[in-house]
Computed example of a mutant assay.
Amino acid sequence: MIAKKVLLVGNFGVGKTSLIRRFVLNQFSEDYISTIGVRVSSKVVAYENQEIKLLIWDVAGTSGDEKIPKAYFLGASAAMFVFDVSREETYSSIDKHLASIKELSGLQNITIVGNKKDLLSKEELETVIDTVSVKIDLITSAKEDDNVEDAFLQLTSQTLK
C-alpha cells in the first residue's frame, strides 16, 4: 500500500472539514468548529486495482490574505481547493489563491470543488458556475453526500500523476 499526502485548502467556513468527515466517517454535523492549524485524517481507498492510504491534511481556512505555513505543503501529492458556492467572497479571487497554493506546494493541478450546493437553486448554481474564473471540477454537498466520494477519488487520481 502506498500513502499519499493530500491537502484541502480554502477560506474558512467553506466546508473542508465537513467534506473530510463525510468522506472518512460518513458523518455530517451542522455545528461549525473552526480548524486551528491543521488536522490530519486518513482513509484507505481502492483506486485502479491498488490501495492508497490518503493522509488528508485539513488546513485551517483563511479569510484570504493570511499566509499558510509552507511546511503544510511539503510532500503533498495533490491538493483540493474548496469554495462555498453560496459565498462570493470565497471564490471571487480564486486565481490569486490558486497561484499561491501552486507556488507553495509545487503542484500544477489543483482539484477545484464548489461545496454547499444544497444552499442554492439550480439557477443560482448555474450563475455561480458561469461567474467563477476557473474550471470547477466538481460541485458537492457534504450535507447531502453529493459528489463527495467523487471529489476524493479525483484527488486520489491526481496523486498518481
Score class of each variant (00 low, 15 high):
residue 46 A to Q: 14
residue 23 F to P: 06
residue 31 D to M: 09
residue 108 Q to R: 13
residue 88 E to D: 09
residue 120 L to N: 01
residue 88 E to T: 09
residue 29 S to H: 01
residue 15 G to V: 06
residue 40 V to E: 12
residue 3 A to R: 12
residue 16 K to Q: 04
residue 152 F to Y: 06
residue 44 V to E: 14
residue 111 T to A: 15
residue 147 N to T: 07
residue 90 T to G: 05
residue 42 S to Y: 10
residue 161 K to G: 15
residue 37 G to V: 07
residue 22 R to K: 12
residue 63 S to Q: 12
residue 100 S to P: 04
residue 141 S to H: 03
residue 28 F to S: 08
residue 67 K to P: 08
residue 114 G to R: 03
residue 80 M to D: 04
residue 69 P to A: 09
residue 34 S to A: 15
residue 7 L to E: 01
residue 101 I to C: 00
residue 121 S to R: 00
residue 55 L to P: 01
residue 25 L to R: 10
residue 16 K to V: 00
residue 41 S to A: 09
residue 107 L to I: 08
residue 111 T to C: 15
residue 154 Q to P: 01
residue 78 A to F: 05
residue 65 D to Y: 12
residue 148 V to D: 03
residue 66 E to G: 06
residue 74 L to Y: 14
residue 3 A to C: 11
residue 123 E to K: 10
residue 84 D to V: 07
residue 42 S to K: 12
residue 125 L to V: 09
residue 37 G to R: 08
residue 142 A to D: 07
residue 54 L to C: 08
residue 157 S to E: 12
residue 36 I to P: 02
residue 125 L to T: 11
residue 89 E to I: 14
residue 116 K to R: 12
residue 7 L to T: 04
residue 136 I to H: 01
residue 98 L to C: 05
residue 104 L to E: 09
residue 83 F to L: 11
residue 7 L to A: 07
residue 104 L to D: 09
residue 88 E to V: 09
residue 138 L to Y: 10
residue 7 L to N: 01
residue 59 V to I: 14
residue 1 M to A: 15
residue 22 R to M: 06
residue 95 D to M: 10
residue 43 K to N: 07
residue 148 V to P: 03
residue 101 I to Y: 13
residue 115 N to M: 08
residue 24 V to Q: 10
